[in-house]
Each structure stands twice: as structure tokens, then as C-alpha cells.
Design a protein around this nucleic acid. Structure first.
Lengths: 163, 163
DNA sequence: AAAGATTGACATCTCAATCTTG
DNA sequence: CAAGATTGAGATGTCAATCTTT
């Protein structure tokens, strides 16, 4: 028999099976683990970011601008769609990032209602250095997986996400 | 060739590969999907809860009490450890749940510093009905997976979570 | 002094209302 | 009037300080 180390969700599921033996807890086995892994990831991410003086929300905005490519400019609306927060939140985030000189606001050349948010040189340097550390931290979270298992995991997660 | 539907993370990873071809984005393929699935799950959960007039944070507390078994009583400290929030947050949550008569506060019989939080009959009925709906909603999120794939996914997630 | 719970200050999010321009 | 951005109100979280009891 292969020994499998129980995790926190095994404890959770056992408790529910004891108290509610009528319910099928199979979905919990998958989705509680997804949820808890996401929280663990948030903490690891926060650790990687704090080494560069960034909060997670700051990284999210800077990263969206960085991966959009030169000239590293997006409207607040595009940033809202990239990051999944509301427009009020994004106005606030851009205010604070601009105060730190990591982004700047520019008038939209073609639309008087609009604004363009641009990554500054300092913002770009910060996000580039942070991303390298973030990926290194994430790699450490995954180093218990074999490559075939990792690839299979990606396929399964993609199927869940694309519905 | 099997066609695989691309998801939102494929778009994200492609952007990074274009802008930072020097970086190995493999960790992102797993962990960005975990993170986004967790957010999708949060929205589904909120939907299942709202049908019963509950917020997610309310369910988290009631569920911890319910699965602890009769007499459905835990200290605020135990609830903090079960739910992963801070003690200040838990004081607040218990206040609001008690105002809704879903839990009640009792003096701890053996420790004058302590308090016991008890699930009321109404709280128990609410959490029992909500849990059934939650599991049904979660089952729908997973119904694209074959049983062997689901079982393999659980094994892989458990390995990631137990380190 | 340590442990358990509470309180208050502060940060950040969402939602709805508002302002400006197309 | 629709779209884009901003503002303000309210909800909920964290953190650090405090109070009570062990």
C-alpha cells in the first residue's frame, strides 16, 4: 500500500461525513482543495511581493500593464477587465500607484472621456524584478509534482476553467 | 489531433511569453488556474448562499459549528482556527450572527475568560439546507470531469496542499 | 506574564450615484 | 441617452492595543 499524507481537507471531509452521512462530499474533495490552495498561494505571493515593497493589488495592475507590451498603456476600463475588480476600485488603485510614481495618468488622445494609464520606467523595473521572484516562489510550491502529473493537472484545470 | 478549448489563462500565459520570453511560465499554468477557479467558485458559492439569505462569511461560521457535531458549540478561538480569519473579525462575525439569532453566546462554564458560541435551531436548519444546495452547485462545476480524472485531480491537489 | 476576547483605527472592496464627453 | 471615469457610502477585513481571567 502506498501511504498518502492526509491534508486539511481530509479532516474537513471526515467531519462532514460523520455529521451528514447522507450527503455526497465528492465535490468538496476537489473544490475545497482548490480554494485552500488559492489562499496558500495568496500568502506566498504576498511574501514575494513584500520583498519589493509591493502589495498584491499593486502587482496585479502593474503586471497587466507590463504584459500588454509597449507602450505599456491601458485605459482604466481595460485594467478593470484584466484584473476583475470594479471601476471604483480601479480609480482608487491608479490614484495610489500614481502617487508612488509607478504609473502615470495621461489624457486619452482620441476620446475626451477617457484616460490612459502608463507604466513608468520605475514601475516596469519593479514589476519585472517582482515577477521573476514570484515565479520562483510558485515553482517551489509545485516542486513535489512530476512533470507528467503537472501536465495532467494543467489539462484538467483548463477543462474546469473553460466552462 | 484532439482539439482543446483554450481558457483565460492560455491568453495570460501567451501574453507573458511574448513579453518575457526569458521566463519559464510553467508555474503560472497551474497556479493562475487554481486562483481563477477559486474566484469562480466564490461567485457560485455566493449564488447558492443568497438563495438562503446568507453571505459566504456567515456560512463559513455556521458550517464550522455544524460539522463540529452536537452540541454545536465552539469557542471564538476554535472558530478562528477553523475559518482562518483574525480574532477581531470573529468577534464581529459572532456579533452579527447573534443579532440574526443564528448563533448565541454563552459563558464558558470552566474558564471565565472564555465564551462559547452555539448554533441555534434556526442556524442549524439554515446551514443544513444551504449545504445541500452548495454541494449541488459544486457538483455542476465538476460535471465535465470523468470519475478517474476527478480522482486523479484529488490526489494531485492533496499532494500540493500537504506541504 | 500568558491566553482569550473585544475594541478601535485604518485599509480596501463593492455598489450606486454622478459628472463629462461622444 | 450610452460609455468611461470618478466619487461617496457602507460592508468587512487586518492589525495593534486593551481588558479580564488564569
Amino acid at each position: 500500500m502506498t501511504e498518502v499524507a492526509p491534508d486539511e481537507v481530509d479532516v474537513l471531509v471526515d467531519a462532514w461525513r460523520r455529521e451528514r452521512p447522507d450527503l455526497d462530499t465528492a465535490p468538496m474533495e476537489v473544490l475545497s482543495r482548490i480554494s485552500r490552495l488559492a489562499h496558500h498561494l495568496d500568502r506566498r505571493r504576498a511574501g514575494a511581493f513584500s520583498a519589493h515593497g509591493l502589495e498584491a493589488w499593486e502587482f496585479d495592475v502593474l503586471a497587466a500593464l507590463r504584459r500588454s507590451g509597449p507602450p505599456y498603456r491601458l485605459t482604466p476600463g481595460q485594467l478593470v477587465r484584466e484584473t476583475g475588480v470594479t471601476s471604483g476600485t480601479m480609480t482608487n488603485r491608479v490614484d495610489r500607484l500614481a502617487a508612488r510614481r509607478l504609473v502615470s495618468r495621461e489624457e486619452h488622445p482620441a476620446d475626451g472621456r477617457g484616460v490612459l494609464v502608463r507604466l513608468t520606467a520605475e514601475g516596469r523595473e519593479t514589476v519585472d524584478a517582482t515577477l521573476a521572484d514570484l515565479l520562483a516562489a510558485e515553482r517551489r510550491m509545485l516542486d513535489g509534482l512530476t512533470e507528467p502529473d503537472r501536465a495532467q493537472l494543467v489539462r484538467t484545470l483548463r477543462r474546469l476553467l473553460s466552462r
